[in-house]
Simulated scan of single mutants.
Amino acid sequence: MIQTLKNNTELHKAIFIVWQISGLISILVLSLVFFTTEDFLLSKIPTCPSQLQGSSCILCGSSRAFFEIKHLHFGKALQLNSSSIFIFFGLLINAGFLITYQLKNFRK
């Protein structure tokens, strides 16, 4: 079974495509955080349906927390969403790997 997975080039290609798409989404999200104003972006994001029902989801407060991380206010970001720092740096690492990979292939 393990040998079958190692030789399965279609699976490898599919995972590679999913990684590239997630990397592009990471770049898009980070670009929005760094190149737009808070007021503009927060006015365009709808209220989470969970908040309308009086509860919260894992992403509630992430948009505001990302702007706090941008300003290096990590404590405030943790108050807004306890997982925001991990999500933000995960997006940053994913985007960095994709950009590095694309630059290496561009040079070839």
Score class of each variant (00 low, 15 high):
2 I>A: 05
2 I>G: 15
3 Q>Y: 10
4 T>A: 15
8 N>W: 14
8 N>A: 13
9 T>C: 01
11 L>K: 13
13 K>P: 01
14 A>F: 05
14 A>Q: 04
16 F>R: 14
18 V>L: 03
21 I>K: 02
22 S>M: 07
25 I>S: 06
26 S>V: 03
26 S>T: 05
26 S>K: 01
27 I>H: 00
27 I>T: 06
28 L>K: 00
28 L>C: 08
28 L>D: 00
28 L>W: 08
29 V>S: 10
29 V>K: 02
29 V>M: 15
30 L>N: 09
32 L>Q: 05
34 F>S: 04
36 T>M: 13
37 T>R: 08
37 T>H: 07
38 E>F: 13
39 D>G: 12
41 L>I: 15
43 S>R: 11
44 K>R: 14
45 I>F: 03
45 I>C: 04
45 I>G: 03
46 P>A: 15
46 P>M: 11
46 P>H: 14
49 P>I: 00
49 P>F: 11
52 L>I: 08
52 L>S: 11
52 L>H: 06
52 L>R: 12
53 Q>W: 08
54 G>A: 04
54 G>D: 03
55 S>T: 13
57 C>E: 04
59 L>R: 07
59 L>N: 09
60 C>H: 03
60 C>E: 07
61 G>Q: 10
62 S>H: 02
63 S>L: 07
65 A>G: 06
66 F>L: 11
67 F>K: 05
68 E>M: 07
68 E>V: 01
68 E>D: 15
71 H>I: 05
72 L>Y: 15
77 A>I: 11
78 L>W: 13
79 Q>K: 13
79 Q>P: 00
79 Q>A: 12
83 S>G: 14
84 S>G: 09
85 I>E: 01
86 F>K: 08
86 F>M: 09
86 F>I: 03
87 I>D: 02
88 F>Q: 08
89 F>Y: 14
90 G>T: 14
90 G>L: 10
90 G>R: 03
91 L>W: 06
93 I>P: 04
93 I>H: 03
95 A>E: 02
96 G>H: 02
98 L>C: 09
99 I>E: 01
99 I>C: 04
100 T>E: 09
101 Y>W: 14
101 Y>E: 06
101 Y>A: 10
101 Y>L: 10
102 Q>M: 14
102 Q>H: 04
103 L>Q: 03
103 L>I: 14
103 L>G: 01
104 K>M: 12
107 R>E: 05
108 K>L: 15
